[in-house]
Every structure is written in C-alpha cells, then in structure tokens.
Amino acid sequence: MEADTEAALRRTRRLFVNRDNLHAAIRTVVNKTLEVRDVSLWGPGTTCASDSRKFGSWSANFMTEWHQRYGGAGIMVYWHVERKNVCIYSQVRSTTDSEVASMIEGLLRHLTSAEIDRQYTDTHGASIVGFAFSHLLDFKLLPRLKNIGSARLYRPGLTEGEAWPQLEGVLSGKTIDWELIANQYDQMIKYATALRLGTAEAHQMLRRFTRGGPKHPTYRAIEELGRANKDIFYGRPVI
C-alpha cells in the first residue's frame, strides 16, 4: 500500500481531527461500552467520581497559571470517571479555576448515556454552593471531606438544638435562614435551569456570585440551602 503523503495527512488533520470530532468519537466509545456491559455484574452506571490533576506547561500557554497548592506553574485537567473506570468527561482548566464549577460543568455537559445521580469528589470539589446546586440539579454530592471532624452543624431553628442535647458539642450558634431560601427560591431555580440548559456556564455563574463586596441576595440564599444540605450529608450514612 502506498504511504500517505505529508500533505494528505495534514489535510486529514485539518478537516477531521478537531475537538468536536474527537468529543463525538469518545462519546460513541463510552456509550457503546455502557451499552454492552452486563448491569448485573457492573452496575447501572449512575455513580461518578471527579478529580483534577495539575500538568506543567510552558509559560507561553495562555492558560498557564501559578498555584501555591499545586507547587508550580501549569494547567489543570479535571476528569469525571464513572464507577467502573469509564471516563465520561474531561476538561482543561486553569489551576485557579473553581473545582466545584468544574464538577458541575462535567455532570451537565458529558452528553453520554450515563445517568449520574451520585457524584463523589474530594474536599476541593465540594462547597456549600456545590451542595446547593446538587440539590437543585437533582443529584447527590458525596465528598470525601478531610476536615469533617471539625464540622459544626447549623441549627434548624433558634430553639431546635434543645431537642438534641447529645449534639451540643457539634451544633453551632447559627441557624438556617429558611425565610431567605423561600423568598429567593424562584431565582435559584432560574439559575439552576440556566445551568441545565447551557445558557450559562458554572464558572461564570460562581464567579459572578463570589466577587468581593456585598453578597447578592440569591447567592446568600444558595449558601443557606447549601448549608442545610451539607448538614444533612453529615448526618446520614452514605450507601
């Protein structure tokens, strides 16, 4: 067989080897893998874990940033891996990007046939905002928290703690503002719908809410909802 010329290979790369085609090919492989698996042996494929890894990169790369935790300049690759080691989504981010936003973005944009309802992360992939959006987007956030021993639970009401004297050591003096959650619930649903439909990116939305200065009322309500769901996570067994 006659070898392909350099010009033909360059033309093939230019016309066919691009991000959209690679995503489509990977998605096809993942979907076929999930399709042929025996559910009785491998499970239904509804559990996913996500984490990031830092890769060194040249300073000329526009995404290269220095991050103290990663110990050097580089970029971050964030993976979503289904329970039986099938990667359903990956994304290249800057090292200073929010891992919580990357976690949400991957769950909503993977476009495979996997129906994820439980998401595992490390401490950096979870926050009270992450707990709130996981509730609004209807999946369970199950982080591995390294500081769980120092966690303090918010009280449901001003006098609710009196009913559980054994929990006095882990209850804080603060309470959940249910009225704020009720008043801003329609707005929270609006933002969650924008994320689900793709009209807004998680990174943009979280960046908008977490700027310095006074907090947006909806963001304060999201924090309250996240605290409530985080406390529920602390108090229930993970199955």
Rank of each mutant, 00 (worst) to 15 (best):
W79C: 12
H124C: 01
Q119H: 14
V86C: 08
G45D: 02
H110G: 11
D51C: 09
G106R: 02
E99T: 07
S172M: 00
I239R: 06
A49I: 10
D186C: 09
S90D: 09
E168Q: 13
M1H: 05
M1V: 03
Q184W: 03
L107M: 13
A221S: 05
I128N: 11
I189H: 02
A8H: 01
I148W: 11
S134Q: 07
P217V: 12
L111G: 09
C48Y: 05
Y78E: 07
M1C: 07
V238N: 11
L142H: 06
G198F: 06
R93E: 15
H203V: 14
A49C: 01
V170C: 12
E99N: 07
D38I: 10
I176W: 06
S102D: 12
D117I: 12
L145H: 03
K190M: 13
R211H: 10
N229V: 03
E82K: 00
L167C: 10
L225N: 01
T33S: 13
P156E: 10
N31D: 15
F133G: 00
N21A: 14
Y154V: 05
R211Y: 09
K54Y: 06
Y70L: 00
Y219K: 03
T33C: 08
Q187D: 13
H23G: 03
V77P: 08
L15Y: 00
K140N: 09
I222M: 13
L107I: 15
F233T: 04
D117L: 02
I232P: 02
D231C: 11
R83W: 06
T46L: 01
L158Q: 12
Y234N: 08
V39I: 12
R19K: 11
Y191G: 07
A73D: 12
Q119G: 02
A182I: 11
T175K: 04
A126S: 14
I88C: 03
V17P: 00
I222A: 15
D20N: 01
L15N: 07
M76K: 14
R37W: 05
I75Y: 10
L41G: 00
P143M: 08
L167V: 02
H23M: 09
G198I: 14
V170S: 08
Q91M: 13
T210Q: 14
Y120P: 01
G169F: 04
Q184Y: 06
K32I: 11
A73I: 01
E65L: 12
A7D: 08
E223N: 08
E201Q: 14
R19G: 02
I116N: 07
D38Y: 00
S94M: 15
R11Q: 10
S59T: 13
G149C: 04
G161K: 03
D117K: 08
P217N: 05
N229I: 07
M63F: 10
A101D: 05
A8Q: 03
H124S: 10
L136I: 12
S102F: 07
P143R: 04
K174Q: 14
K32R: 13
G71A: 12
H67V: 03
F55N: 03
Q166E: 15
H110M: 09
T33L: 11
I148G: 04
F139C: 10
G173D: 14
V238C: 09
T175R: 05
S127G: 05
P143G: 08
S52T: 12
I104G: 00
E35C: 00
T95A: 15
G74V: 12
H67W: 05
Y70S: 15
D51Q: 00
H23T: 13
T33H: 06
G161M: 00
R207N: 14
T28V: 06
D20G: 03
F139W: 14
G235M: 15
A132K: 08
